[in-house]
Write a protein that binds this DNA or RNA. Structure first.
Lengths: 334, 334
DNA sequence: ATGAAAGCGCTAACAC
DNA sequence: GTGTTAGCGCTTTCAT
């Protein structure tokens, strides 16, 4: 292994000078710099990140904690975070909390031990005591979707409430007259807001009744079983706003399997904007979150914090877009 | 931050003794050990992984390089790797090479600098020079699917050849009489073997012709466009063996969109065994790889290597299972 | 069985 | 501008 001292020796300077050219800080003579750079070239020297981390408490690593890597939304998000992080010279460590608070805690522990520079939490199991611990350890972090109650954090999220309203209005516009909602786990703010948007928009219609709201788990199987339950309960439903795309795919499958035509008998609208919605037949209408932007913004904010910029602890809410597709097409036979 | 010296001071011993109880190596008196443990408890001491890494060259971290995080196969694999790694006390660093050799190389560089203990490559862009570099840096690694030509490595993979044969035979059994194949990128051994299995099995049939083999890219969109091309070229095809599940989902979508009934007119069989095949209608028959086992075995092998066990450089080939579903159901109306 | 000392490879004051 | 010095927090000989 070639070290900074080898470079120093070869270029006839001290290790600190080499360190200076490496980190582009402090004054260093043009010529000296050239000599050092040549030596680095010649020796194929690569600074050791571990040693650097120990000395400087900065490791050039940020972590991204995801709740469930099997929902395609998160890989898409991860890609954005990784892209931006790399462009700033950071490496990303991914962790999967599986929606388990204890797994999340153990990640925080491990990451702290590794001097990770900062963490992005896309996991709704982040607890208040976690936040306190992060703060006392001075580990910068950014939260996607929501912060623990009563904690001021930098939060990045989509306008879920308005998105839900858009979805329901779209279903009304295209002719649906009895619209149900399959919602996600209510511990997740996202799921809660979408449910609220639905309820607000439909509560004054004559057909509305609370049993039109059916719980799901944000996963494929949850969509399938919720759709089944819903259609048994209310066979006359002609539009479903599903809390996320993954469940919407499951809903579509169940409806088709039950012999129900989509969109002729029941229209389906999802939420998230994952590519999977374009891969099924019919393609599913969805309220698309700006997934890449969410990840990119979170990463930029985090890197600013890491660099000591005093980032305001506010909620950054990004707008969503309704993408109309065949699953909510107007029935032109009417 | 509480350090090993704080613990040493509180328990009235030296740092080395604390280190010994921490690492359970070397002799240490029962009583001393208790005192130290109490001090650790009291101070909530957590050893610093960076310092530890610098001193010992071991970081308790392994890395997993994935080619494409948006194919659900890889998150499922990642989960297995993470599970097993955690059970052995290792942390996993995930990297996404996007099938780009240079991104992969830059990962190797970064990981080396971080004293990562070992790497699992699930990326087919691993080059011969990468292997040479890893060897000279003494970084243990395990390869999923295939090693660069001429390099003896520990490889874990499925029996793709036999899997392809099973798929085609299944299509024949259920009544298909003109079977096409949509294959993946031929740089990927997996794709190549599956293609070979197809060709071998069908080449002696009268209906066989090379234009029944259509290239795809292992992604959703590739499946869609390949299916379109195929059906225009050979409208009388009545069975398609698709090189992977993600493309199969795309194929199914395109067929349905073209008004072609599945399985009545065309039967579809995929490969991989991802959950997504159960989330579409009709559910897609697939040759399931033992995804969890693949990841688990690769991880165990790697950890053995990391621990200095002299693991034989051989190919571990796991068996696959055909899961018959509706997309290849026999047409009972005949 | 335990401690002292050296050092992992680098950074960062502080001199000069 | 550049070198010297002193660590970062831990492991690991080598004495004792």
């Amino acid at each position: 292994m070639t070290t900074i001292r080898d470079v120093a020796k070869l270029s006839g300077v001290s290790a600190s000078t080499v360190s200076r050219v490496l980190n582009k800080n402090g004054y260093v003579n043009q010529e000296t710099e050239q000599k050092v750079k040549q030596a680095i070239q010649k020796l194929q020297y690569e600074p050791n990140a571990v040693a650097r981390g120990l000395a400087s408490k900065k490791t050039g690593t940020i972590a991204l904690i995801l709740p469930n890597i099997t929902n395609p939304f998160f890989p898409e998000l991860a890609r954005a975070v990784e892209d931006v992080a790399r462009s700033y010279g950071y490496t990303v460590l991914f962790g999967n909390s599986d929606d388990q608070g204890d797994k999340e805690k153990s990640y925080i522990e491990v990451l702290k031990q590794r001097y990770v520079d900062g963490i992005i939490f896309s996991s709704h199991t982040l607890q208040r005591d976690d936040v306190v611990r992060l703060r006392s350890n001075k580990i910068p972090f950014v939260v996607l979707d929501r912060a623990p109650v009563g904690e001021a954090c930098s939060v990045v999220r989509s306008n879920n409430l308005e998105g839900a309203r858009m979805a329901v209005r779209h279903l009304l516009d295209r002719g649906s007259r009895k619209i149900a909602h399959i919602y996600g786990p209510q511990e997740i703010l996202t799921a809660k807001e979408r449910l609220r948007g639905y309820e607000e928009t439909v509560k004054d219609f004559g057909w509305y009744t609370p049993t039109l709201m059916v719980p799901g788990n944000f996963r494929l199987d949850g969509g399938m079983s919720a759709a089944k339950e819903l259609m048994q309960r209310h066979p006359d439903v002609d539009g479903i706003f599903v809390g996320n795309d993954l469940m919407a795919v499951g809903v579509l499958k169940t409806l088709l399997r039950m012999g129900i035509k989509v969109p002729e008998q029941v229209a389906v609208c999802g939420f998230d904007g994952i590519h999977l919605t374009e891969a099924v037949e019919p393609e599913i209408t969805t309220v698309a979150q700006p997934i890449y932007e969410l990840g990119a913004l979170a990463t930029k904010l985090l890197i600013q914090k890491v660099n000591g910029v005093d980032v305001e602890n506010k909620v950054h809410e990004l707008e969503v877009t309704l993408i109309p597709r065949d699953s909510t097409r107007k029935d032109t036979s009417l």
